[in-house]
Amino acid sequence: MSYWMKSLLLLPFVFVACVQAEPLQKSFSDWQLTCNNAAFCVARSFPGDNGLVMTLSRGAGVNDRPLLRIDYGSAYSGELPGGPLKENLLLDQRRLTPDLKHWSVEPHHLATSNAIAIDEFLAQTLDAHTMQLTYQAKATIPLSGMKAALLLMDDVQGRVNGASAWVKRGDRAPSDVPPVPQVPQLPARLPQPAPLTQEETSGLIDYGTWRVNTDNCSLDPLRREVSVAPLTDTKALLLISCEAGAYNVIDLAFEVTRSQPYVARGLTLTLPFTPPGRSDNQMELVNAEFDASSGLLYTFSKGRGLGDCGVATRWQYNGNDFVLAEYAEEKTCDAWHSSDKWPTLWVSQPPS
């Protein structure tokens, strides 16, 4: 039974449009599939540090905006030497010559959003084993996990046994697919608070350094960094570094009154879903940064120092707590893309 059907059975048919997709990130051999709460899915081959990667993405519903890309070289590697992809791809050791009439063609980048062109390309490659470059044997795209990843993508989006499926195609009309799940709307942005005065800043930093309850912090008070920013005209945000590693710093967050006597309340980040591989939905504030002008809090947990894998989140302050706006995660550490390109597991609508 498909992911969307499992959710659908719990609700009357009239409420189909309100069904939310379940975020997921899963690996199949050398392919990774990520789907967010809007049932937008991205599948890509790995490892990317061999230089050559294929990516397929698709939205839910009828207007699915499909995209297939083959790229040689990344933001980390820069441009790589060698001839153009269109003349130098092998499929199971035989020359691959796709019809590129509806493709965007650059020397080391091929892309198409044409549904027929994607179907034709998948017909050639779904049951193959390897795609590689003629002049660089290590630059390969393993294909063994692609079919399973795309089958799960079809399942998540309710396409299995339909004409729009990429793998298990059937007789259902292309329009016979579930609608795009609704995503939550962020709270309205609060009025921009008055900047902290020098006196407020000094008092709050002193309070955060010596008097707020940080008993569970491993860092010595003399090594802790304290930052302060206005949340509202009467409340401020204190971020206090609590633990430090090679490339990640974990902070504690407090909502504090801007005037004495200071009253502090600990803030926590609670996800509206449980990420794959996790048993809880509580998030630590890792490498946190707060933008007082927008009320947005950012976290960036690096899987390694290069910053090519990990978790990046964005939160909106609603006057009392922080609400998740976006959650992106890249489990595969393969020097392929930086955090601004990581696949999302949670997205939201901007405030109305």
Rank of each mutant, 00 (worst) to 15 (best):
M1L: 09
S2L: 08
Y3F: 13
Y3G: 02
W4S: 09
K6M: 15
S7L: 07
L8T: 05
L9A: 12
V16S: 11
V19T: 11
V19C: 08
Q20E: 05
E22I: 15
P23K: 10
L24Y: 10
D30R: 15
W31N: 07
L33W: 12
T34M: 00
A39P: 06
A39T: 03
R44I: 01
F46R: 10
N50F: 00
V53P: 00
V53C: 02
S57A: 10
R58C: 11
G59A: 13
A60V: 03
R69D: 13
S74R: 07
A75E: 14
S77F: 03
G78E: 14
E79M: 13
P81Y: 06
G83S: 12
K86H: 13
E87Y: 08
L89E: 03
L91M: 12
Q93W: 01
R94I: 03
R95Q: 13
L96S: 10
S104G: 07
V105F: 11
V105L: 12
P107E: 13
S113R: 14
N114Q: 15
I116Q: 15
I116N: 14
I118N: 11
Q124R: 14
L126N: 07
A128L: 00
A128S: 05
Y135V: 08
Y135Q: 15
T140S: 09
G145T: 10
M146Y: 10
L150A: 04
L150T: 05
L152G: 11
M153T: 08
V156D: 13
R159C: 09
R159W: 12
V160T: 15
N161R: 11
S164T: 11
S164K: 11
W166C: 07
K168M: 12
D171L: 13
D171R: 14
P174H: 08
P181Y: 03
P184Y: 02
Q185D: 07
L186R: 04
P191E: 04
P193S: 07
A194Y: 02
P195R: 09
L196H: 03
Q198R: 14
I205D: 03
R211C: 00
D215M: 00
P221S: 07
R223H: 14
R224V: 02
V226T: 11
S227K: 07
V228S: 04
T232H: 02
K235W: 03
K235H: 11
L238G: 04
L238S: 04
I240L: 02
C242D: 12
A244L: 01
A246P: 01
I250S: 08
L252V: 00
V256Y: 04
V256A: 05
T257E: 04
T257L: 04
A264P: 03
R265H: 14
L267G: 07
L267N: 08
L267I: 15
T268Q: 13
P276L: 09
G277I: 00
G277E: 00
Q282N: 13
E289Q: 12
F290C: 08
A292R: 00
S293R: 09
S294R: 06
K302F: 12
K302W: 10
L306G: 06
R314Y: 01
Q316H: 01
Y317L: 01
G319T: 02
G319F: 06
D321C: 02
D321M: 02
E326K: 13
A328H: 04
K331W: 01
K331G: 10
D334A: 05
A335Y: 10
A335D: 15
H337D: 11
W342F: 10
W346H: 06
W346T: 04
V347R: 08
V347S: 03
P351K: 01
S352W: 00
